[in-house]
Nucleic acid binder design. Structure first.
Length: 376
RNA sequence: GGGGAGAUACCAAAGCGGCCAACUGGGGCAGACUGUAAAUCUGCUGGCGUACGCCUUCGUAGGUUCGAAUCCUGCUCUCCCCA
């Protein structure tokens, strides 16, 4: 994988860049739709690619390992072939599930013992086997196995948690270096910076990951219950340490405003379930603000979903019709909401990139931050 | 014509003397959702008030009772069975 830093915006840390992978190029900043189980929920890959214009999507180690299982994915020739997606894929390591499925797992030095949420069966994730599984899945970018520290953790817990993540990282990197890709193309490995909301821990974590000279670096453990101001501060602290010439990935973030603020602070890559999950639940993000399409006020508004929208669904369907679909619990409603939101997210980061290249990012961003948070 | 059952809030449906402004569903209204155990979850849903509360409700008109959606009587309407 190669990263080229093309431009930095005036009065900002915002960057435009280009990542080259075996499955094609990614223009940054970029938003990566989440496809946990090998599908961007409710959206055909044809639309993910041609309409939404996603350049890379996510998969999840924990979920794919449990179902369909490594054997099937290997037999298929890797995840790309299995799901029919020929652009880049990034897999999360399962570290987030260690956090979100917290009540059915146990952390030890060795790794995380957990029970399947599907059938209760017992499993063990270690830094080593998580790298192995990601080799088998065959994503272009694979992630370190970390503990995603809760946003409200106290300093002592966060510090010990970080140290565990750091020891796990060293084991991940060792395994990564000892193993080869299985499908004939290279895979890049990204470490993850933890440290909760404590600046000194974050700085220490950033220095630690930077010492390994990886292809890119991720910031994790944000948007997990901490204050937004803390999140922004942590991004600043970490990005001050991470090398300029490598992509920076802010995991699991976020709202359109979070993304704009992240870009402004030097983040290159984002992923989040919000556009799909919220879209599926009737909340539409637009450049003019947020629409809760289920609200009564749209019942006879026959204007297009989003006149400024870039997706075909934006012009094709009216607000009143989309509201009707949600009221009637028709699955097409969830699909339209998901497609619209993803297309908006991809438009947002693409436009941010253009503004960075044009040197006009800062002013544009300030204006967008005012607009996108409004309730329509 | 004979026999039986029933009328409860937007709909369906509990309640069968005080703990009932009334269980529960549905519908409706609103909110939440951030590396997806989520096509999910939460709240509200007689009126007024932020709230303690106050006022008007259980087909309808009366009655019994300290007290009625609950008991009694008349009326109106609906449904089922037999002719």
């Amino acid at each position: 994988m190669k990263f080229e830093l093309q431009c930095t915006a005036p009065l900002s840390k915002a960057r435009a860049g280009k990542i080259e992978t075996a499955h094609g190029q990614i223009d940054t900043p970029i938003f990566m739709p989440v496809g946990t189980l090998g599908s961007v929920k409710g959206v055909h890959f044809k639309d993910v690619k041609e309409d939404i214009k996603a350049q890379i999507i996510l998969g999840n180690t924990y979920h794919l390992y449990l179902r369909p299982g490594v054997e099937i994915i290997e037999k298929a020739g890797g995840l790309h072939k299995f799901i029919g997606w020929d652009r880049p894929i990034l897999t999360d390591s399962g570290g987030f599930q260690v956090f979100s499925l917290g009540d059915i797992r146990k952390l030890t030095e060795e790794g995380a013992r957990f029970q399947s949420h599907i059938d209760g069966s017992r499993h063990l994730f270690t830094p080593e086997n998580v790298v192995d599984i990601q080799r088998s899945i065959g994503a272009d970018i694979i992630m370190a196995f970390d503990e995603c520290t809760p946003g409200d953790a106290d300093y002592d817990y966060a510090s010990k948690s970080l140290e565990l993540t750091q020891r796990w990282l060293e084991r991940c990197i060792k395994r990564y270096n000892e193993t080869e890709p299985k499908y004939g193309y290279s895979q890049s490995f990204f470490p993850i910076v933890q440290g909760c909301v404590y600046a000194d821990l974050r700085k220490k974590a950033a220095e630690h990951v930077a010492s390994f000279n990886c292809d890119g670096y991720a910031i994790g453990g944000l948007s997990v219950g901490e204050k937004e101001a803390d999140m922004y501060e942590m991004i600043e602290v970490v990005n001050a340490v991470l090398p300029e010439n490598k992509p920076r990935y802010l995991m699991g973030v976020g709202t359109p405003i979070n993304i704009l603020e992240g870009i402004d602070r030097g983040i290159d890559m984002f992923d989040c379930v919000m556009p799909t999950r919220n879209g599926r639940n009737g909340m539409l993000f637009t450049r003019n603000g947020i629409i809760n399409i289920k609200n009564n006020k749209w019942r006879d508004d026959f204007s297009p979903i989003d006149l400024n929208g870039t997706s075909f669904v934006d012009q094709q369907y009216s607000k009143a019709y989309l509201r009707h679909l949600f009221q009637a619990k028709e699955m097409l409603g969830a699909q339209i909401g998901s497609i619209h939101n993803l297309a908006f997210y991809l438009w947002l980061v693409g436009e941010a990139r253009q503004q960075i290249l044009a040197g006009t990012f800062k002013g544009w961003k300030e204006q967008m931050v005012k607009q996108v948070g409004q309730r329509l």
